[in-house]
Write a protein that binds this DNA or RNA. Structure first.
Length: 969
RNA sequence: GCGGGUGUGGUGAAAUUGGUAGACACGCCAGACUUAGGAUCUGGUGCCUUCGGUGUGUAGGUUCGAGUCCUAUCACCCGCACCA
């Protein structure tokens, strides 16, 4: 019987589906284990071989855990709201829902072919109303909450209004907007309902605010900071500008400290944690206010070095700072205005790229030093960013490089306040070795003590206090798109009102066009039935809007990250209509034990998910503080692009092999001539007409493993019709060799390799093994099918341990000691490797085992049955087939993992390597139970030792029993 | 600039607490069986050479012994980037 992967795999995939083999129970006596993949966006291009890498790894782990007796939750779903479907809709008029459904069907088909053990009964789609009902519900919870710094958690807004009614807002320690006007209880109670609503918006965890946003004109939408790469949009690469708009925001800044501290408790890669720390950007220092001379205004600054306050010789404001126009003197007005205009013209990108140029203008105004009362000139400069801290700095040129450079450039005095330090060339920013001098009451103190004392003194003056600043900004939560979650919000007198949760979901309305409206409103502005009837609790026609009982609904939709910020909890109880998941389900599954996905989500999805999880924890819905205990980032699989080199001779178009490309004047070129004898172009040694070469992507499917192009197929390919009559200059073997380069796998580079083709040709088990065999999971690596025959051959060899041409050859004979040793060595290795996520090495472990067992002609059931279980997480189809062939009933998937027994590995003797000065010279077989002294005696008497030492006695003998012998001559 | 990571044969890569460097594969070479093979099987394969030497980016150090530990340095990749 031959190994026929296609037949076996179809059979078992059908079996698993029909028997719901991988359906997880919410009530099980077994310990739980939750293995999660980052769910895919179902794009039109389908899966390529890079997508399943993480899924295969998590599937191996999930299957292993089932063998180990865990109740495993291993679900899959789709992050199905998104821009590509919407853009396709704009182009074709096709409803994004239709495109999305088609794409999902294709994804599902591809995923099924790889044999994943997903519990599909729990599938989620973020674009399903059943799902986004709960995304809307969570939004409402956020709206109805505020962050209490005293209890250090989110609380219901009613606890805030209770305080307002009794004490006003003076005693409230909340995370809120900067510009809060104080009021008393009496004032609060006297406010109109609308005034109260406006104030509460400044405290809510999601709030409407006029914010400067990243506006992308080409996409007609707002982008979050992490959706912008190098100043252009992540999707499409369109330019982005700053613009003021009223937008929903999420007060993620309230959770900055908890998001930072939580990182210490989770098992994630250091690089991702570091990215998040960086993104949160905590800095500890002080807020200081400087009085302005001749003005009532004050300048607020944040500094991490309050200890250097006596070194302040000037201040710098960001050009956009609101005080600039107020304080600029008439003499300086022209220069300041010109500078502001010049800065505004420069794009964010230019400003970022150009760090070297020092520029700035004096405003003519002076601030007053809080202690010395000396005048301090106030400058503006674009090295100060409006968006960080207060948009103003106290400049201490002796202690900060940028201040130093600025002062030198404009001839501002530099005052040295460090003891024993030369600052004639550069600033001194070493905190640890700082000793303050020339600073009144701070003299002689180190950084820590001086900081503390400076803050105390500032507090006494009422001009400062200790403060911690975070780089993390609140996240804009509105998008001017169609294909996203609608907000459960309507407007009464421009004030947002939440729809009662029992009326959710608010379903996305139908529109004629998916573009923004002509008057610049978001696409939902095209909807004609998009008003909220507060009497009948339903969405009604816009014609009925009377601003009495029927009100307009929100036109923005939620961003892409809304639906993905809580989806793991929906898997716990997918079909619940009463809650996003039942309390019992949440208590049982708790959180994700293992999460596998790409590192590109480091500061997006992985941060927002932690934020929402913490919020839901505060409100008593989520059971744990952190959603993902362990995170593994799989490396990207890169494509290996193929290139052909096109050039022209007269009117002829020719292609030369990579081998023939030579460089000329730094340009690629070839030497080519027409050979009239052969009646074709040939490559010559001689330089003839130089013609520039054009590098063209050739579809990798037209190239074999030896980089040879199928020339006929190329000429007949629809893509290359222009080259139908071109000549190819072959090498001496008559082959055309393409050039290869590693690039990102992408449709436009024609380097996409499809998993379906691999499954078709070799089988899913081979694909699974090969993707794991490629190298360490977390490492980026180019896809190259060259080695796939190795794992394919391995599976055939495995099969032949069980079958010959006539059928099953497994016996019930007693296995040999050697076979048992191989088995148990493999159990140990595979178990350790899986637990360390070292899947590549366990594949070679299997190969070694099968090689050994084949060589020993092992066909005993006592070996081959456990072997099938061992390999089942990796190659589940063949494992099921072998398991069944051995006469077992049902699926192998829950069978206990073989237990390692060390007794089979005990050796009676060891082949010791004998080294001289650390270099191995010969080996000697010795019994294991010899002592070091006995070994030494034998070794010293050995003639090879005597020869190595020229008959001399060794200076030193190192013997580690069971390991090595080393002699020093 | 700061932070994180990676450097090992022709290629992908292995290597417990420091203990035989290159497991396992691909490729290549030779052979067997074949009309044939991109099927299957066997053997060989780090590099330089004749013994022997030499080898884990480079230069040092610690050690009986270093891919592994320490110091310096180079290259590449990723993230953040005038963060006060």
């Amino acid at each position: 019987m031959k190994y026929n992967p296609n037949q076996i795999e179809a059979k078992w995939q059908k079996y698993w589906s029909e028997n719901q083999t991988f359906k997880a129970a919410n009530d099980s006596a077994k310990p739980k284990y939750f293995v999660l993949d980052m769910f895919p966006y179902p794009s039109g291009a389908g899966l390529h071989v890079g997508h399943p890498l993480g899924y295969i790894a998590s599937d191996i782990y999930a299957r292993y855990k089932r063998h180990k007796g865990f109740n495993v939750l291993h679900p899959q779903g789709y992050d199905s709201f998104g821009l590509p479907a919407e853009q396709y809709a704009i182009q074709t008029g096709q409803h994004p829902e239709k495109t999305t459904k088609e794409n999902i069907a294709r994804y599902r088909e591809q995923l099924d072919k790889i044999g994943f053990s997903f519990d599909w009964s729990r599938e989620v789609r973020t674009s399903n109303p059943d799902y986004y009902k709960w995304t809307q519900w969570i939004f409402i919870q956020l709206f109805n909450s505020w962050y209490n710094n005293d209890s250090d958690k989110a609380e219901d807004i009613s606890t805030l209004t209770a305080i307002f009614e009794k004490e006003g807002n003076a005693t409230v320690n909340a995370v809120c907007d900067e510009a809060i006007v104080p009021f008393t209880a009496a004032q609060w109670n006297a406010f109109s309902k609308e005034e109260q609503e406006k104030i509460l918006l400044q405290y809510r965890l999601t709030y409407l605010a006029e914010t400067e946003v990243n506006w992308c004109p080409a996409l007609g939408t707002v982008l979050a900071n992490d959706e912008i790469i190098n100043g252009v949009s992540e999707r499409g690469g369109h330019p982005v500008i700053r613009k003021k708009m009223t937008q929903w925001s999420m007060r993620i800044s309230a959770y900055a400290e908890r998001l930072l501290q939580g990182l210490e408790t989770i098992d994630w890669s250091e690089s991702i944690k570091e990215s998040q720390r960086n993104w949160i950007g905590k800095s500890v220092g002080a807020a200081v206010t400087f009085n302005l001379k001749g003005h009532d205004e004050k300048v607020a600054v944040f500094t991490t070095r309050p200890d250097t306050i006596f070194g302040v010789t000037f201040m710098t404001l960001a050009p956009e700072h609101e005080l600039v126009t107020k304080i600029t003197t008439p003499e300086q007005k022209q220069a300041v205005d010109a500078y502001i205009e010049a800065t505004a013209k420069r794009s964010e990108r230019d400003r970022m790229a150009d760090v070297k140029t020092i520029s700035g203008v004096f405003t003519g105004a002076y601030a007053e030093h809080p202690f010395t009362k000396e005048p301090i000139p106030v400058w503006i400069g674009d090295y100060v960013l409006a968006g960080y801290g207060t948009g103003a700095v106290m400049a201490v040129p002796c202690g900060d490089e940028r201040d130093y450079a600025f002062a030198k450039h404009f001839g501002i005095p530099i005052k040295n306040i460090f003891e024993g330090v030369d600052i004639s060339e550069t600033a001194y920013s070493d905190k640890e070795n700082t000793v303050i001098a020339d600073s009144d009451f701070l003299n002689g103190l180190d950084y820590k003590k001086a900081t503390q004392k400076a803050i105390e003194a500032l507090e006494q003056l009422g001009q400062g206090k200790g403060k911690t600043n975070y780089r993390l900004r609140d996240a804009v939560f509105s998008r001017q798109r169609y294909w996203g979650e609608p907000f459960p919000v309507y407007y009464v007198n421009d004030l947002p009102q939440m729809i009662e949760t029992e009326h959710l979901p608010i379903v996305l309305p139908e529109v004629e066009k998916y573009l923004p409206t002509e008057d610049g409103q978001p696409p939902l502005g095209n909807a004609t039935v998009w008003a909220w009837d507060t009497a009948n609790h339903k969405v009604v026609s816009n014609d009925l809007i009377d601003h009495v009982t029927v009100f307009p609904l929100e036109l923005n939709t939620m961003p892409g990250w809304a639906g993905s910020s809580w989806y793991w909890m929906r898997y716990m109880d997918t079909h619940n209509n009463e809650a996003f998941a039942s309390e019992e389900a949440l208590q049982y599954w708790e959180n994700v034990d293992l999460y596998i996905g790409g590192s590109e989500h480091a500061t997006g999805h992985l941060l927002y998910s932690r934020f929402w999880n913490k919020f839901l924890k505060d409100k008593g819905f989520a059971p744990t503080e952190e959603p993902f205990k362990k995170l593994i980032n799989q490396g990207m699989i890169l494509g290996t692009s193929a290139f052909v080199y096109r050039f022209t001779m007269g009117t002829d178009v020719l292609f030369a092999s990579k081998n023939f490309i030579v460089e000329k004047d730094g340009q690629p070129g070839v030497y080519v001539a027409f050979d009239s004898a052969q009646n074709k172009y040939i490559i010559t040694e001689q330089e003839s007409d130089f013609v520039p070469v054009l590098k063209i992507h050739a579809d990798v499917n037209l190239v074999n493993a030896s980089d040879e192009l199928d020339i006929d197929a190329f000429k007949n390919h629809a893509l290359y019709q222009d080259y139908k009559n071109s000549q190819f200059i072959a090498n001496e073997n008559g082959k055309y060799i393409v050039g290869r380069e590693v690039e990102k796998m992408s449709k436009s580079k024609y380097n996409v390799v499809n998993p379906d083709d691999i499954c078709e040709q070799y089988g899913a088990d081979t694909l699974r093994l090969y993707e794991m065999f490629l190298g360490p999971l977390e490492q980026a690596k180019p896809w190259n099918t060259a080695g796939i025959t190795g794992v394919s051959g391995f599976l055939k060899k495995l099969w032949r341990l069980y079958f010959d041409d006539n059928g099953l050859i497994v016996t019930d004979n007693e296995p040999s000691k050697e076979a048992l040793k191989t088995l148990h060595k493999t159990i140990k290795k595979v178990q350790e490797d899986i637990e360390n996520f070292s899947f590549n090495t366990s594949v070679s472990g299997f190969m070694i085992a099968v090689n050994e067992l084949s060589a020993a002609k092992c066909n005993e059931r006592a070996i081959l049955e456990p072997l099938a279980i061992l390999i089942s997480p990796y190659a589940p189809h063949i494992a099921e087939e072998l398991w069944q062939a051995l006469g077992n009933e049902g699926s192998i998937s829950q069978v206990p993992f073989p237990v390692f027994d060390a007794k089979h590995l005990v050796e009676s003797s060891k082949e010791y390597p004998v080294s001289f000065n650390g270099k191995m010279r010969f080996k000697i077989e010795l019994p294991m139970d010899l002592t070091a002294a006995e070994i030494e005696k034998i070794i010293l008497a050995d003639e090879r030792t005597i020869a190595q030492l020229n008959g001399n006695a060794p200076k030193k003998v190192v013997i580690v029993p069971g390991k090595i012998i080393n002699l020093v001559g």
